[in-house]
Design a binder for these strands. Structure first.
Length: 839
RNA sequence: GGGCCGUUGGCGCAGUUGGUAGCGCACUUGCAUGACGCGCAAGGGGUCGGGGGUUCGAGUCCCUCACGGCCCACCA
């Protein structure tokens, strides 16, 4: 066996060298001839390509890659595709800012359109097809940047399996999945109050809400009571007074019981509204009696629905007070007051109406500033409003018990992450809203009949055959209709909405496995083995994927979920954008080397937030260099001691080191099987350092031939076996340096080599391994070193005589390695004395 | 309001059936040895957040409190 040992070991250039060779050699190519039970399939998180590249990506994707590499070496054929999440609002927003354009769906396509060279102050209006073109153009660049990073990070993905959430396969899967839910009555459309973002002009789902603390003010308002006595209520939304449809109090509240069933009148508008009782009214809040408006918050929606109240909406989809009053107000000045509010933003209207109340004398005291939580769209920057609109939903609410059961079936790593899933499922309060009034997304594959009198029949959608998918209802025509019939009485109209990005990414296992398009592949990879992801999207991505797989396949989409933590800055805050821009992932990879950065990432325990620590990267770099140097030393000893022809390890010390290695293999294997890559690394690293500092030093002289040929052969054979095992144990973490060493010595890639087998290590020894031999020999050598340090002499200094006092069993162990200890310590004479304690 | 996680030397962490506290960084001192000065060797430094309990014995189990972080909740 040839041994190419680099003369001047260096980590520089390893990345580009091996990235190219792995690609050329198809090292990570998925072999689709393997049956399902031989496959290990990973449902890779498709990164949002319009977002920033940050160190958090490097962190969590490294974790998954270590698992992928371990499983590959264990003999599983690893299905490890990459996906790009380019669908949806983040891309639209980035395109708007980057090119300075705005989508206007009423415009028609301009084939010659070019975006302005610099984004103008006033955005240019473009048609929807032009806008979508720009989205594709920009995401192509973004995807290239991500791919460069992933390749540089050494992710062992099969790049021939890459998908994008807006590509044709994803559109087909999304539409097919939707149509099947529709056919089974699990998807439905409904006109109902929905959370609405006034800036993005789209409906928003429960899973995308953020609570944000912000300043507000309680305004105490006087309503006209039935007996002439005023009724005072507190509100933070006085601008919704014209939308008030009732007052509500708790049924058991003695203060207001006499009012329930009576009618009061609103200030300024003089509108009569009933007083109702409901359990959700909190006697502790405000005055204990509240106004119900359509709609100020989700509690209003509950009250409105359960108490059977009318709708008086006042806020338009753009967040302004509508032009026409919701009713003709009966109070004398009602219409005049409305004129003061119409067209104003919510904020302007709030200020104005407070002033009007003050003037009319219906304001009690002054507004009292408070800080309260307000619901926002997680990507938005104005509070959500609630508007009534037609939307598509998936029936999740009545199946929560099924989803909880699926959560129990799933193996969570770490296990406590299951609690987040359960609390989310238990807290569900509405069905899953999947439609968005946006442009860059998968269209709903539906049209609706238009009646002769012009009304749209939403209850009987026109559905395409699955073989037609994907369809775009804005250009494609339903079967049996003429294109001329579009938007005409007696004709049809296309559904204008697109699916939310989660409606597509909830199908990533199906998309990656080419469900419906390639049944052979799908059968080999589904259900998958692993879903790796971050904890903040358990309620979105993880939950929704479980939902879709449960409905479509009646099973979990994968057996394991590995939840990674975040990268945090030294102040324990999630890495900020500004920080992320200073420390770029590619910069770190270039500065410390990929293996070093991976070492830092792999040191972060599963699920645990981890500090960005360049110190750990330096340690990783040193480890990689140490691997290179130790390997160089072992291989430069020349002979492999007959490893190739079955020679045996005879020296007790050598057998001991193989025993330690066998134990390590057991520990690392168990850790990896439990998805604890960090534990596997920690133990491998610890043994490696003691291997270098103790065992290597102890056998160095013997390996050079200081005790004869046979003794040298045993040492060399043990060193070779140990190195082979250690390189393979490190390979999932340090893929570049291990491959560099392996390639100069072994056939094929270390990443396709079999994972070390503990029994194989044990069998190589000619006799039983006595761990005590190595332990005592290292301890005695340590004492000799201590004495030399105390004497301030070189480690190379000769020692005339050493006396070891220790327990009898330990002295016996020492005997079999005494020649190595003497040679390593340069001891002329070594004597032993039995004693109770070591000294 | 409910829940989850964390609190171990200056910093970052390990400690998986309870048995007299470990690792790395940093720090101190020494060493040019035939793999490595991006090295090697030695060393100083902690009453394991507070309190209570179980036990012969608790960082490790139970209760409780505090602090930090996160998740969830119909927060007028």
């Amino acid at each position: 066996m040839s041994r190419n040992v680099p003369e001047k070991p260096s980590l520089d250039g390893l990345e580009s060298k091996w990235i190219a060779r792995w690609e050329a050699g198809g090292t990570y190519r998925f072999d689709r001839s393997v049956a399902r039970d031989g496959v290990y399939a990973i449902d890779t998180p498709p990164p949002t390509v319009s977002g920033s590249l940050h160190i958090g990506h490097v962190f969590s994707y490294t974790h998954t890659d270590t698992i992928a590499r371990f499983q590959r070496m264990r003999g599983r054929e690893v299905f490890y595709p990459m996906g790009w999440d380019d669908n949806g609002l983040p891309t639209e927003r980035r395109v708007q800012n980057y090119f300075g354009v705005r989508c206007d769906p009423s415009l028609s396509y301009d084939p010659g359109f070019q975006p302005p060279p610099e984004p103008p102050r006033q955005p240019v209006s473009v048609s929807r097809p032009n806008f979508v073109e720009l989205c594709h153009r920009l995401t192509a660049d973004d995807e290239k940047a991500f791919e460069d990073l992933w390749r540089h990070l050494g992710l062992s993905v099969d790049w021939t399996m890459t998908y994008a959430t807006i590509d044709e396969g994803s559109q087909r899967a999304s539409q097919r999945g939707f149509l099947r839910l529709l056919a089974r009555g699990l998807a439905y459309s409904s006109e109902a109050p929905t959370l609405w973002d006034v800036d993005f002009q789209t409906a928003v789902a429960q899973a995308e809400l953020d609570d944000r603390e912000q300043p507000g003010a309680y305004v105490r308002v006087r309503f006209g009571g039935p007996d002439g006595q005023p009724v005072e209520i507190d509100t933070t939304r006085p601008e919704l007074l014209p939308a008030c449809v009732a007052l509500v109090t708790h049924p058991d509240d003695p203060r207001y019981r006499h009012l329930v069933g009576s009618t009061v009148t609103t200030p300024l508008f003089g509108e009569p509204v009933p007083v109702k009782a409901h359990e959700l009214a909190d006697p502790e809040k405000g005055t204990g009696i509240a106004m119900i408006c359509t709609f100020g918050d989700v509690t209003d929606v509950v009250w409105w629905r359960e108490l059977g109240l009318p709708v008086r909406s006042v806020i338009e989809r753009d967040g302004r007070i509508r032009d026409a009053a919701p009713v003709s107000f009966r109070g004398g000045n009602g219409q005049d007051h409305w004129q003061e509010l119409r067209g104003k933003t919510v904020k302007q209207a709030r200020e104005r109406i407070t002033e009007l109340l003050r003037q009319s004398g219906d304001l009690v005291g002054e507004p009292r500033p408070i800080t309260h939580a307000v619901k926002y769209y997680e990507k938005g920057n104005r509070p959500l409003e609630i508007v009534t609109s037609r939307q598509w939903f998936i029936r999740t609410l009545e199946h929560t018990d099924d989803f909880l059961r699926r959560g129990e079936e799933l193996a969570w790593h770490p296990p406590y992450m299951r609690a987040r899933y359960e609390s989310w499922v238990q807290g569900l309060n509405s069905d899953w809203l999947i439609s968005r009034q946006r442009f860059f997304g998968v269209p709903f594959p539906l049209w609706y009949p238009v009646a002769e009198e012009g009304s749209v029949d939403y209850d009987h959608p026109l559905v395409p055959d699955e073989s037609r998918l994907p369809v775009d209802p804005s250009t494609d025509v339903p079967d049996g209709y003429d294109p001329e019939a579009r938007d005409r009485p007696g004709g049809f109209t296309g559904d204008p909405d697109v699916m939310d990005t989660w409606a597509t990414s909830s199908l990533t296992p199906q998309i990656a496995g080419r469900w419906g398009d390639d049944p052979d592949l799908f059968g080999r990879v589904f259900p998958m083995d692993l879903r790796p992801q971050a904890h903040e999207i358990i309620r979105t991505w993880l939950f929704s994927t479980v939902v879709r797989s449960h409905f479509e396949h009646d099973r979990l989409p994968w057996g394991h979920a590995a939840i990674s933590g975040w990268v945090v800055d030294p102040d324990r805050k999630k890495m900020s954008k500004s920080k992320g821009n200073v420390v770029t992932p590619m910069g770190l990879l270039e500065q410390y080397g990929t293996d070093a950065v991976r070492y830092w990432a792999a040191s972060g325990r599963p699920g645990v937030d981890t500090v960005l620590d360049e110190g750990q990267m330096r340690v990783g770099r040193r480890l990689a260099i140490k691997v290179l140097n130790a390997s160089r030393f072992v291989l430069s000893l020349g002979s492999d001691g007959g490893a190739a022809d079955g020679g045996q390890v005879t020296a007790a010390l050598d057998r001991a080191v193989l025993g330690r290695l066998a134990d390590l293999v057991d520990t690392a294997t168990t850790a990896f099987e439990g998805y604890d890559y960090a534990r596997a690394l920690e133990h491998t690293e610890a043994l490696f350092w003691s291997f270098c500092n103790d065992y290597l030093e102890l056998v160095k002289g013997r390996a050079y031939g200081g005790q004869g040929e046979e003794a040298a052969a045993s040492a060399n054979r043990a060193l070779t076996l140990a190195l082979s095992s250690l390189l393979r144990l490190f390979a999932p973490f340090l893929p570049f340096v291990t491959e560099e060493v392996w390639s100069g010595w072994q056939e094929g890639s270390v990443h396709r080599a079999p994972w070390p087998d503990a029994d194989e290590r044990r069998a190589a020894a000619a006799g039983p391994a006595d761990a005590l031999v190595l332990e005592v020999a290292a301890a005695v050598l340590g004492e000799i070193r201590k004495a030399k340090t105390a004497a301030r002499t070189s480690m190379r200094a000769d020692v005339a005589r050493v006396v070891v006092r220790d327990r009898a069993d330990r002295l016996v162990a020492l005997t079999s390695a005494v020649a190595d200890v003497r040679e390593a310590g340069r001891v002329a004479d070594l004597a032993t004395e039995e004693a109770d304690t070591f000294s």
